[in-house]
């Protein structure tokens, strides 16, 4: 049987590579303002938001593209989009 090169990817984290390197603005959660409504988790198109050990939302910056959807949807404005490369890189 001939080898056909077939571009199939399995649904797993990073199927398209480490997309966090695309990020220009990084969402940073202010836990003082966060009311744990989980709208950010619901709206995140990359599914990189999960529950952290402290019970607050946690963002996986390896794959977060920095689209800002979470910040836009946050009802208490608890997510700030911080420019990358200003002394706050991970």
């Amino acid at each position: 049987m001939a080898t056909n090169v077939i571009p199939v990817s399995l649904p797993e984290a990073g199927a398209s590579g480490e997309t966090g390197i695309w990020r220009v603005f990084r969402p940073v959660i202010n836990k003082e303002k966060c009311v744990k409504c989980w709208l950010c988790w619901l709206y995140c198109q990359e599914e990189v938001i999960s529950e952290g050990a402290d019970g607050f939302p946690e963002i996986d910056y390896t794959y977060c593209k920095g689209c800002g959807m979470c910040a836009n949807e946050c009802p208490t404005k608890a997510i700030e989009m911080v420019p990358e490369g200003r002394g706050n890189s991970l």
Partner: peptide
């Protein structure tokens, strides 16, 4: 479930798929 035709970067197998 699988994804078909996801993004490929220039150093990945795009050319090989076309060759195939």
């Amino acid at each position: 479930p699988i994804t078909y035709g996801n993004l490929v970067m220039p150093d990945q197998l795009y050319m090989e798929m076309r060759w195939s």
